[in-house]
């Protein structure tokens, strides 16, 4: 039986994992390579890392960090943040990423999804979608939720699937960072309208939240704070899910 994937997410600047809201009060949580290695060894099913400050100067160090991480883990690695064109995708895959996640660039230029999936295969193209409720509608937002696009969430999710995305990384900006649980309602809307895998992201604070995330039919559950702060070990989450009858890799 296919297992529900538990995916720690590293927000990275250069080679450091950081935590911070909208670039304010940025706190260094640890060295990215060390943390990646730790998660791979302690039972993570996949790893996600995002360049959250993809400036020209920081990018080179970030790519080196991707290379170093790819060398020390042997689970799949998804890399995103600051991906704006096909050459960025090629650079990350060459650095050792198994999948590349595209967000704003896909919204601005949807053709990029098709071009990328034709060149590298759908299986390595993840489209990250940030969703937010606005005037009673679920909309796609970019720039960390600061810019609301004209795209309606479900229409966009279906569109990225038809353009060849292999997976959707779905973050609700209404629940992200609050630790009150995933946005079940938004996730269910997405999973019931596409048939590519959906990774749930944004809002995990307790063990039960992981279970509720599974109930949305998301096949991957992504979390950052609860792992980085050592509130839960990956094993703890998996044992809990297993006890609730959710298939996990133990």
């Amino acid at each position: 039986m296919l297992k529900t994937r538990i995916i720690p997410c590293l927000d990275v600047i250069k080679n450091k994992v950081v935590k911070g809201v909208n670039f304010k009060n940025i706190r260094v949580m640890g060295n990215a390579v060390e943390m990646a290695k730790y998660y791979s060894l302690s039972g993570a099913d996949e790893l996600c890392m995002l360049d959250i400050n993809a400036s020209y100067q920081n990018r080179k160090t970030f790519i080196k960090t991707v290379e170093s991480i790819a060398k020390v883990i042997n689970i799949p690695l998804t890399v995103g943040g600051g991906v704006s064109d096909l050459s960025d995708i090629t650079d990350l895959l060459n650095a050792g990423a198994d999948k590349v996640s595209i967000n704003s660039a896909a919204v601005k230029n949807p053709k990029l999804i098709r071009q990328a999936s034709l060149r590298h295969g759908s299986q390595c193209i993840v489209v990250a979608i940030d969703g937010k409720r606005y005037k009673n509608k679920m909309k796609v937002v970019i720039k960390g939720g600061r810019e609301i696009t004209k795209n309606e969430l479900i229409t966009w999710a279906k569109q990225v699937q038809s353009l060849g995305a292999g997976e959707i990384l779905m973050t609700s900006m209404d629940t992200d960072g609050v630790q009150n649980g995933f946005d079940s309602n938004m996730l269910k809307k997405v999973t019931s309208n596409v048939r590519i895998p959906v990774i749930a992201s944004g809002g995990v604070g307790s063990l039960e939240h992981f279970y509720l995330g599974h109930l949305t039919k998301s096949t991957g559950l992504l979390a950052a704070s609860v792992f980085h702060s050592r509130k839960y070990k990956i094993k703890t989450v998996k044992k809990y899910l297993n006890s609730k009858g959710v298939p996990v890799r133990l």
Binding site: K3, D45, T219
Partner: peptide, 12 residues
């Protein structure tokens, strides 16, 4: 045809 595709993740 209703299956989630690709089959992506850990399986036995």
């Amino acid at each position: 045809k209703k299956l989630i595709i690709p089959h992506m993740g850990w399986n036995t």
